[in-house]
C-alpha cells in the first residue's frame, strides 16, 4: 500500500462553523484577559490548521484579525453589543495567533499572542481628510487633558474620589484647538468633596471602574473642559482558569478578574 500522503493536520475552511466557533472562543479569551485598551471583535480568520492531539482532542492553530470596539476593556458590556471603531475614528486592528484545544466538544485556549496597530494616517486621511488622528498617550497635551478632565469630574462628584487608571485613546483636534481623550478611572475609599491628599486614597476592595470621554478646548487665557463618565457596576474578584503557563498574555494586557455575567452600567454621570 502506498504510504499515506498529505498533511498531518486537518484542513478546514476558514468560514467553517467549527473554525468560527474556535475563533470566537479565542476572541472572548483576549477580551476577558485585557485590563487596558478596548475590547476587540472578530473581523477575519486568516488561517486555520487542525492538528490531532494525543491522547485525545484536536488543536486549532489559527491566525485571526480583530478590530477594536468602542467598549473599554473594563466595561462589562458583552462585546456583541459593542460598536466597531470606525475608520473615521482612526480604527485599530489586532493580529492574533492562537492555539485552541477542542476536547469533548469544548474549546479551551492553550496559547494566545496578539499585536495591535492603528490604521495608517494615509488611509484615515484618504477616507476623511479632516479627521483627527490618534495622538501618543504620553504626550503632554493628552496627559494634561485627562488630568484636567478627571479633576473636573471629581470636583462635581458627590460620591467617591476617582483615580486615573489609564488613558486609552486621544486625538488632537485642530479646530477649535482641543484635545479629545478617553480614559479609565477607579473608585477610591475617599469622598470626592473631602479629598485633601489624593495620594492617601486607596482603591476599593470591591473594584469599581468607570470610563470617561473628555474634550479640553484651548481658549484665550484658559481652557474649557467637558467630561462624561460612565461608572460600571462593581466587579467581584473571581478565580479564573488559566491557560498553559508558557502562553503569553496578549500584548499590552494583564490578567484581570472576569467581568460579572450580568453586566449593568451605572450612569453615565455627566459633568
Amino acid at each position: 500500500a502506498p504510504p499515506a500522503i498529505g498533511p498531518a493536520y486537518r484542513e478546514l475552511n476558514c468560514d467553517d462553523p467549527e473554525t468560527e466557533q474556535a475563533a470566537l472562543v479565542a476572541v472572548d479569551y483576549i477580551n476577558k484577559h485585557l485590563s487596558r485598551g478596548y475590547k476587540h471583535t472578530l473581523n477575519q480568520i486568516d488561517k486555520v490548521k487542525v492538528w490531532p492531539r494525543r491522547p485525545m482532542g484536536e488543536v486549532f492553530e489559527m491566525e485571526i484579525d480583530t478590530l477594536e470596539t468602542t467598549c473599554h476593556a473594563l466595561d462589562p458590556t458583552p462585546v456583541v453589543n459593542c460598536s466597531v471603531r470606525q475608520l473615521t475614528q482612526h480604527a485599530v486592528e489586532g493580529d492574533c495567533d492562537f492555539r485552541v484545544l477542542k476536547q469533548d466538544g469544548q474549546f479551551h485556549v492553550l496559547f494566545a499572542k496578539c499585536d495591535s496597530s492603528p490604521d495608517s494616517a494615509e488611509d484615515v486621511l484618504k477616507v476623511c481628510p479632516d479627521c483627527p488622528l490618534l495622538a501618543p498617550l504620553n504626550s503632554t497635551k493628552v496627559v494634561h487633558a485627562a488630568e484636567a478632565a478627571l479633576r473636573t469630574f471629581n470636583a462635581h462628584s458627590n460620591g467617591s474620589y476617582f483615580q486615573l487608571v489609564d488613558v486609552s485613546r486621544a486625538q488632537l483636534v485642530p479646530l477649535p484647538v482641543s484635545t479629545y481623550v478617553e480614559f479609565a478611572v477607579a473608585a477610591t475609599d475617599c469622598v470626592a468633596k473631602e479629598v485633601t491628599d489624593p495620594a492617601k486614597c486607596n482603591l476599593l476592595a470591591e473594584q469599581q471602574y468607570g470610563f470617561c470621554k473628555a474634550t479640553l478646548t484651548e481658549k484665550v487665557g484658559g481652557e474649557d473642559v467637558a467630561v462624561t463618565c460612565a461608572v460600571f457596576q462593581t466587579q467581584p474578584v473571581l478565580p479564573q482558569p488559566q491557560p498553559d503557563t508558557n502562553a503569553p498574555t496578549p500584548v499590552g494586557a494583564s490578567v484581570v478578574p472576569a467581568p460579572p455575567p450580568a453586566p449593568m452600567v451605572v450612569g453615565p454621570l455627566v459633568v
Binding site: 498529505g6 475552511n13 476558514c14 468560514d15 473554525t19 468560527e20 486555520v48 484579525d65 480604527a91
Partner: peptide, 27 residues
C-alpha cells in the same frame, strides 16, 4: 512489448478557502 505501469494520480485536496470572510472592513 514493454509498457509503463499505470500510475494512479493522487487526488489533490482542494485548497480550503482561506482567509475567510471580512466581517467589518479591512485596514
Amino acid at each position: 512489448k514493454v509498457v509503463q505501469p499505470g500510475v494512479v494520480a493522487a487526488v489533490s485536496p482542494v485548497a480550503p478557502p482561506c482567509p475567510g470572510r471580512i466581517r467589518h472592513f479591512k485596514i
